[in-house]
């Protein structure tokens, strides 16, 4: 390990909560919300890789790779939905898409 695990964890936590803050603040713009989710997922990946390096077990890396694969699926679907919504309403403001409220 190049630095103690705690420092990496704190870095990951900072990234994660910056992403979360962005997610809360950018609630009007779907694209930016997705970007913020990517930031959060990246932070999670950092934790996995750090764990993998700490304990010398490749499983952490594998989970990071799985996260990446799942993210690519999620993003492709989400962006297709953005295109679809934009085509319907000419906006990407999520607050305007609330027809499915209970």
């Amino acid at each position: 390990m190049i630095v103690p695990l705690e420092q990496i964890l704190i870095l990951a936590g900072l990234l994660f909560f910056i992403g979360m803050g962005g997610l809360l603040a950018w609630r009007a713009n779907l694209i930016m919300m997705l970007v913020c989710i990517e930031i959060m997922l990246n932070a999670v990946m950092l934790v996995f890789v750090a764990g993998s390096a700490q304990w010398g077990d490749p499983d952490g890396q594998l989970f990071a790779i799985f996260i990446m694969a799942l993210t690519s699926a999620e993003v492709s679907l989400a962006l297709a939905m953005v295109v679809y919504l934009h085509r319907r309403r000419k906006t990407v403001n999520t607050d305007l898409f609330s027809e499915m409220r209970g």
Binding site: L23, L24, T94, D95, S98, R101, G102
Partner: peptide
Amino acid sequence: SNGRVATSL
């Protein structure tokens, strides 16, 4: 549950 994503977030 007003259907707004922001509330859930």
